[in-house]
Design a protein around this nucleic acid. Structure first.
Lengths: 225, 225
DNA sequence: TGTAATGTTTACCAATCGGTCAAATTATCC
DNA sequence: GGATAATTTGACCGATTGGTAAACATTACA
């Protein structure tokens, strides 16, 4: 048996890879994921090509494939890295805090992420929009559990009269959708607002409006109906 | 010069095509666009292939290309056909009507469209998400004009005290995003709500919540701040 | 019923896709 | 400084991509 021609790349077993990592490995993987985020978020998984990512990363295609064996592996690594951060604002939702203030700051945080990390938002949007073929488990598992937990918090707030009675799940959905809209549909938002709102001011306007909407819409000090 | 080998397909000039259309032409084009909607809405433009569309349509690839000369032409035709219908609810927004009722029915209509025409919603979402390379003009032209017009209506309502003072553009954005969310992020919504909400009941729940949110959030009969 | 226009198919094309291979180059460590 | 491991590259693979050529089949119409 002669193995001299075929040497296994260092990176094959993911677990092993994390055990010992070269400086070069860390740098290059970082470089690749950065480029992959650019490309995947702009074209979705199926619409993206390894060549595109390679070009953006400024390295050759076989070199990419030395660090990530497949296109899927790149996508997977990207999702894994981004998912945790992405749910951070919801996790910060505090049952002990003041409901109005918690919702207000959740909206702010989500809007800031839409402004500062639009590619991450689009990465998920592309994925979910196309049926979430690669992150179904994450949605039905960790995500659902977290939302269930926070929905319970909201329900408790409503029960105790701190906010008006409402469906907590749809409240969360509506905060997600309104805030992420400014990342995912950025082109449309810009087109409709026109040149005069070309700056970043639209995020401040959005924050003002959304706070008004949600705080006003959920305030309990009003006879129902 | 000998042209006998090369016969121009009937369908080349779009204008001419609409002048005289065979029964077969209408049927087949309908069939193709139906299939194209399926595929494009699920994978975006770049992620879709003519072969996929051909398979869904149940015809051969060259046969598709007899009716639409390129993949772009199919996409274009689809966008054109869907865009008008898609903006219908906003167009129905009536300046003379009762503001609360107008907003309520706009939300209802948009939610019904998300429920009944999710593919159309996803077609646009995919397009906009990926930078709207094919519909930039429509966004900056007809769409912006329509929104500008309706924003003025909303502003007038606020001025006359019928609803609370608010940014009309962001109000429209938030209605778009919250309603279309149920089409575009359907997989996520289902995953989070879980099996128990597998039916169509979520649209009723969403309608109830969103009406509560928007009507409550915009009602003027409350001291500001 | 014949024929010209319309519609469909098979075979094919060059370009691009994701991915492999082995050789060449560079970094690391004793 | 030399051996060894890690990294990079160009050439290449079969499959798939969007699209074409031209023969073949069907329809519409005189």
């Amino acid at each position: 048996m002669n193995f001299k021609g075929k040497r296994q790349p260092v990176t094959i077993p993911r677990a092993a890879k994390t055990l010992r990592r070269t400086r070069i490995q860390e740098e290059k993987e970082e470089q690749i994921l950065e480029a992959a985020l650019d490309v995947f978020s702009a074209s979705g998984f199926r619409g993206s090509t390894i060549d595109q990512i390679a070009e953006v990363a400024g390295m050759s295609k076989p070199n990419l494939l030395y660090y990530f064996r497949t296109k899927e592996a790149m996508h997977r690594a990207l999702i894994d890295r981004v998912l945790y951060t992405w749910l951070e604002p919801l996790r910060a939702f505090d049952a002990e805090g003041n409901p109005e203030e918690e919702i207000r700051s959740y909206i702010r945080r989500k809007l800031e992420m839409a402004r500062d990390f639009p590619r991450e938002s689009r990465l998920f949007a592309n994925e979910v929009l196309q049926g979430a073929p690669h992150i179904e488990d994450e949605l039905k598992g960790p995500l659902k559990e977290l939302v269930d937990e926070k929905a319970e918090v909201i329900r408790a707030w409503a029960k105790s009269g701190k906010i008006t009675e409402c469906d907590p799940y749809h409240l969360i959905f509506s905060i997600w959708s309104t805030t992420q809209h400014y990342a995912d549909f950025d082109v449309q938002v810009r087109a409709v607002l026109g040149q005069e709102h070309a700056g970043e001011g639209r995020f401040e306007d959005a924050a003002r409006f959304l706070e008004q909407l949600f705080i006003g819409g959920l305030r309990p000090d009003r006879s129902e109906r």
